[in-house]
C-alpha cells in the first residue's frame, strides 16, 4: 500500500500539470473574483469564505480525471484490480494521494488567498481547519466520480456533472464554518457535521468506487 502511495505521489509530482495546475487554478479564481465583483473590501470580506471554498472545490475537480485515467490507459489499473490487495484499499490510497497533492496544498495556500479577498481576521484559522477537515471528503467523493467515468471518452465534463451535486453538503458545511468563524460565532456544529461527512465518505465510498472500477474494467 505504501509503495502504491509513493508511486502515485511520484507520478503526480513528476508528470507535471497535475500538481501545480490545481494550485494555479485556485489562485486564478481568487484573482478573478475581485475583478468581477469589484475591489470593495466590505463586499469581498462578505463573500470570501464561499469563494475560497468554491475555488478549492473546483481546483479539486480539475485534477480528478487524473486519478484513474493514466493508469487506465497504460493498463496498470488492470494489474491493480487483479492484485492481491483489495481494490477498496487501492481506491482509498488513490484518494489519499489525490488529497496529498491537491487538498493539502490548497489548504496551505488558502490563507494567502484569504488576504487577497480581505477575509476577516478570525476567519483564517477556521479556513485552514475547515479545508483540512473537508478537502479529504472532496478527494474521496471525486474518486468515486472518476471511478464511474474511468472508461469513457471525454468523461471529464460528465464527471463534473456527477460529482458537483455530491459536493453540495461538504461545500455548505465547509463554507459555513468559515463564515461563522469570520464573524466570531460558534463553529462546533458545522465543523462536526463536516467531519462526519468526511469520515462517512472515507469509510463507505471506497466500496462504491471499487465497485464502479470493477464494472468499468469488466
Amino acid at each position: 500500500m505504501r509503495a502504491l502511495l509513493i508511486r502515485d505521489l511520484r507520478l503526480a509530482m513528476r508528470a507535471g500539470g497535475g500538481f501545480g495546475l490545481a494550485l494555479s487554478f485556485f489562485l486564478l479564481v481568487a484573482v478573478l473574483v475581485p475583478l468581477g465583483v469589484g475591489p470593495e473590501a466590505r463586499v469581498l470580506a462578505l463573500i470570501a469564505p464561499g469563494i475560497l471554498w468554491i475555488g478549492a472545490l473546483l481546483a479539486c475537480l480539475l485534477s480528478l480525471d487524473r486519478i484513474f485515467a493514466l493508469d487506465f490507459e497504460d493498463g496498470s489499473l488492470d494489474l491493480l484490480v487483479t492484485a492481491p490487495m483489495p481494490l477498496e484499499g487501492v481506491v482509498s490510497i488513490k484518494a489519499l494521494a489525490h488529497w496529498l497533492v491537491t487538498g493539502l496544498p490548497l489548504t496551505l495556500l488558502a490563507p494567502v488567498l484569504g488576504v487577497l479577498l480581505h477575509l476577516p481576521g478570525p476567519g483564517y484559522g477556521w479556513l485552514v481547519v475547515s479545508l483540512l477537515v473537508g478537502t479529504p471528503a472532496l478527494s474521496v467523493i471525486g474518486t468515486f466520480g472518476a471511478a464511474l467515468t474511468v472508461g469513457l471518452r471525454r468523461g471529464g465534463l460528465l464527471m463534473s456533472l456527477l460529482v458537483l451535486p455530491l459536493y453540495v453538503p461538504t461545500l455548505i458545511f465547509g463554507a459555513e464554518v468559515v463564515k461563522r468563524g469570520a464573524l466570531g460565532f460558534d463553529t462546533t456544529t458545522p465543523l462536526l457535521l463536516l467531519a462526519g461527512i468526511t469520515l462517512g465518505a472515507a469509510a463507505l465510498l471506497p466500496f462504491a468506487s471499487a465497485a464502479a472500477v470493477r464494472i468499468n474494467l469488466r
Partner: peptide, 18 residues
Amino acid sequence: LCLVGSVFAVLSRYAVNF
C-alpha cells in the same frame, strides 16, 4: 450512482436546511 446519490441527496436536503 443512484445508491450513492440517494445518500447524498438526503444529506443535501438537511444540509440545505441548516
